[in-house]
Amino acid sequence: YSVMVKRFKQPTTTVDYKQRPNLIKQLTSVNAWSMDITYLKLTDGQWGYLASVLDLTSHKILAHQISATMDTKLVVSTLQRALSQHAKPDYLHTDMGSQFTSFGFEQVLQQQGIAHSYSKLGHPYDNAKIESFHSLLKREMIYQFRFASLAHLILAVSNYLDWYNDERISVVHRKMQVA
């Protein structure tokens, strides 16, 4: 069940460079993934950071990883996990956060031959599908429980994602086919 909660003020980052291109905005059918990071608060006030890769066609989470630090290593290893288990996309769409514009992340995309598409600065709607997934995860699971440690959070998110990909998504698609 969805739960509405008070908004909290989360840490922010700044971007000190020009807008980069949104390559998938005008495309109607595209082999693309979307990637983002979200903040998850533990009961002791510490933060965990969840990086997720979403297939924009199947709406399934292809890979995820939680870390105590929000850095390039987190997004690179999450992307590499997705690439090791799935056929590479033509495009990867992200926001313009420092992790996604870092040399290390861009180098992985270049080596794989994946074009990098970016959301417009200040417009999270360009990356709405992955943002929507993170919001859903928080409403359906994160805000309903307390997590004393990063290990508990990692286990709970992994279990939720197994259910999300294998049961929730298939139930939604079956209902759409019946209608």
Rank of each mutant, 00 (worst) to 15 (best):
R81H: 15
K175Y: 12
L56S: 07
A87K: 13
K18H: 13
P124M: 03
K9R: 14
K138R: 03
V172Y: 14
N31D: 15
K175W: 12
Y160A: 01
G113K: 05
A32L: 03
G113F: 09
D162E: 12
M96E: 09
L42C: 08
V3H: 11
L74V: 02
S119F: 02
T69Y: 08
Y160V: 04
V75I: 04
L137F: 09
L50M: 05
T78S: 06
V15S: 10
R146T: 15
S67R: 00
M4F: 09
Q107P: 04
I66S: 03
D166L: 14
H59V: 02
L153A: 11
L121I: 12
L74F: 02
K25V: 06
R81Y: 08
K73S: 14
Q26Y: 10
H86G: 04
Q107W: 11
R146A: 14
T94L: 02
L137K: 00
D71V: 02
D36R: 02
A68E: 13
N22C: 06
A148F: 07
L155D: 15
I61C: 06
S77Q: 11
M70I: 05
K6F: 11
D71P: 03
E131H: 09
G45W: 01
I130N: 03
P21V: 01
K9H: 12
H59Q: 15
D90M: 12
V171I: 14
H64F: 09
F145Y: 13
K120R: 14
L56Y: 05
S67F: 00
Q65R: 15
G48N: 00
S2N: 13
K73N: 14
E106F: 01
L62K: 03
